[in-house]
Design a protein around this nucleic acid. Sequence first.
RNA 1: GUGGGUGUAGCUCAGCUGGUAGAGCAACGGAUUGUGGCUCCGUUGGUCGUGGGUUCAAGUCCCAUCAUCCACCCCA
Length: 411
Amino acid sequence: MIQSLRGMRDIAGREARIFQWIEERARYFFELYGYREIKLPVMERTELFSRGIGDESDIVQKEMYTFEDRKGRSVTLRPEGTAGVVRHYIENGFDKRDPLKKFYYSGAMFRYERPQKGRYRQFYQFGVEAFGMESPLIDADTIAMLVDYFRDIGIESPLVKVNNIGCPGCRPDYNRALQGYLRNHEERLCPDCRKRIETNPLRVLDCKRESCRKVVADSPDIADFLCDSCRSYDEEFQKLLSARKIPFERDRFLVRGLDYYVKTVFEIHGGEGAQNALMGGGRYDGLVEALGGQPVPGFGFAIGVDRLASLLMETSLFEDDPGKLFMVWNLEEQALLLEKCDILRKCGVSVDFLPDKRSFSNQLKYAHRQGYRHVVILGEEEALSEQIHLKNMETGDETYVSPYDIIEHLI
RNA sequence: GUGGGUGUAGCUCAGCUGGUAGAGCAACGGAUUGUGGCUCCGUUGGUCGUGGGUUCAAGUCCCAUCAUCCACCCCA
């Protein structure tokens, strides 16, 4: 038997419906807030990601699906969406002549990782990117959009965590202070974090180990090191979130994995298990320049659709589908069956039937097992009438109705 | 990449210190060829993940491999 590849899965049945719904609502909200769709290639030159995400990042180092194409060029299946959007932005010269742009994208991403709960090698994300805007207004407005969206699709109380991780002007000061503090407590840190003291001290802040978290609890707070510009930016940002009545908490241990982030970073959490971050994002003012464009500020986020879907699978969303009909039929002239189905479908009702002849009893049994709430009985008698012989499978009631108001009877 | 758990019917699982595979549910047929659910009867379905080894004999023991789950690293 040929199986699907490791970490790759089929999304079918109710989960597929939930995926569709999640995406439909996201599109609605993104459009409402002025973002416009962009469809991007699933494969890019490897260089785009190594430069965009950072050569030393784990994603680039060990998680990319990288191949040589037939001409020997190195190509990579996208591990995230931002780099592609930035490439599009620069390729079209928007950075030089028309910098204010808001995009959203959606699709499959690929990372060669060990699968676990809420993590797959092919996974689905959608996200937005706003270019040319350096104002807490865009940060706060976009987070407000997200909270509205999460509530709309039925995530009761999304947990919004925000932080400000400074800019190239002030973060080095903080890094030095943090390094100094961590060196003094090095013996209490895990081996990974000991290395991080030199390579990326910020990452020690979000280590999951109990011992490291104790050390970090008394570490210097970045808020005390922000430059005037970052500080006032953050103050205004939090003021705007409060004014918009967005429940959030500042988490000073929230740092993001991708090194292009500056100032605002944020995550929204929900659900069980270790992989419970539903989305993450932040400001990346240096990224466009790093990929060869003009220095243009950016802000964006990505939502993990698989994780959202698995959360909604726990609810009763789409558990039944009252609007569909099943034809229980027995006719000499089979064309009549198709004719009747056609009429009903033109009235906007989903109709299905079994294509082989079986007894009424048998067909009803089937309809019942499939969970149909209503069936249409179509025998030689009904074939002569304009009326539809409708049976409610829950009450057992049978009525004759016109196909044009059948929808009324299906609720 | 690291650590641990699990692979037996479509699903959930049983199968003792090795002796030739079982239950429940589901599916399908019938009791009921114009009426489902409840009940009863019957039927189908398994190279025990795969490959190798030990043995007279392996679902059971050993090795390898693949898949899956959970956690770490990292991230959505």
